[in-house]
């Protein structure tokens, strides 16, 4: 940032494709600081603090295991249901919390947007990283469960590959956050809608069930959802489950990428009048 002779030009913006990525890079420290702030603020003044990052998915796992594993007896590809579920629940929780907080990020940051300049994309993006920290903590429990169920899991060298599947997750969550946060500024309705969409989303992603629960001719529909690839990828690398359709997985990533780029374009458009309509 301490570049000499940098020049700022203020004029009416018209172009469609000025994503200002260089500027985003200049402000990378703000991204880190905000991600950290989100985390501190989320857990400050709660007695259990960061432990909530672990407790929330674990409690969900217990409830779902009883309801879907025991009572509904959903198939889990021969892997013990709790660990099968938890390995899918973690990337999904990452996605859902990122989207929820990302959608409201511009409204929550209104007093900042109105008073200081910085690339606004940093606000929704900061939650991508905040939730990653949550995810990392919750992963500790997953490793514990994997050790507990080690007899039923086929471990392999692919174990080290699980972070790769975070890439489509971050891309997809980032793209959707941009679209939703920018839209939420114009239409507060988005706020009311997102929780329901996420609820539906969890059931069109194979989180609580295995893909083969669906008839084969409908399975491709599931694969259009980028989160399917993420969840399946997690189970493949961590639990040794045979993976379904690499091609479809790449397709899902492609969709996520398109969403990210289009989200950036849309976001930059809304950004122009952001301070005026917030």
């Amino acid at each position: 940032m301490a570049k000499k002779n940098m020049e700022h030009v203020r004029r009416p913006r018209t172009g469609w494709f000025d994503l200002a990525l260089g500027e985003l890079w200049d402000y990378r420290d703000l991204l880190a600081t905000l991600a950290w702030r989100n985390l501190t603020v989320r857990y400050k003044q709660s007695a259990l603090g960061v432990a909530w990052a672990i407790l929330k998915p674990v409690m969900q796992m217990v409830v779902f295991s009883v309801v879907f594993g025991r009572m509904a007896n959903l198939p889990s590809d021969g892997i013990p249901y709790p660990v099968f579920l938890y390995a899918g629940l973690l990337p999904w929780t990452y996605f859902a919390t990122t989207i929820t907080s990302g959608t409201g990020s511009l409204l929550a940051g209104g007093n900042l947007i109105d008073k200081v300049y910085f690339p606004r994309m940093i606000l929704p993006f900061s939650y991508l990283f905040t939730s990653l920290i949550d995810l990392a903590l919750a992963m500790l429990v997953l490793f514990g469960m994997m050790a507990w169920y080690r007899a039923d899991i086929a471990f392999g060298p692919q174990l080290l590959l699980f972070p790769v599947f975070l890439i489509p997750a971050v891309t997809f969550a980032g793209g959707l956050s941009l679209w939703l946060s920018a839209a939420a500024v114009r239409w507060r309705d988005v706020h009311h809608l997102v929780p329901y969409l996420l609820q539906i989303g969890m059931f069109v992603t194979p989180v609580v069930y295995a893909v083969k629960l669906l008839p084969a001719r409908f399975q491709w529909l599931l694969q259009l959802n980028p989160m399917t690839g993420v969840v399946e990828g997690f189970r493949w690398s961590l639990l040794g489950k045979p993976v379904v359709g690499w091609g479809m997985m790449a397709g899902g990533f492609g969709i996520a990428l398109v969403l990210l780029v289009s989200g950036m374009v849309y976001f930059r458009r809304v950004e122009r009048t952001l301070a005026d309509i917030l």
Partner: peptide
């Protein structure tokens, strides 16, 4: 000038790091 909102006409050029 701070870059918080865009003008609708004309332009302004600022040289150097800005703190507002």
């Amino acid at each position: 000038l701070a870059g918080i909102t865009d003008p609708t006409s004309g332009r302004a050029v600022l040289r150097g790091r800005i703190a507002s």
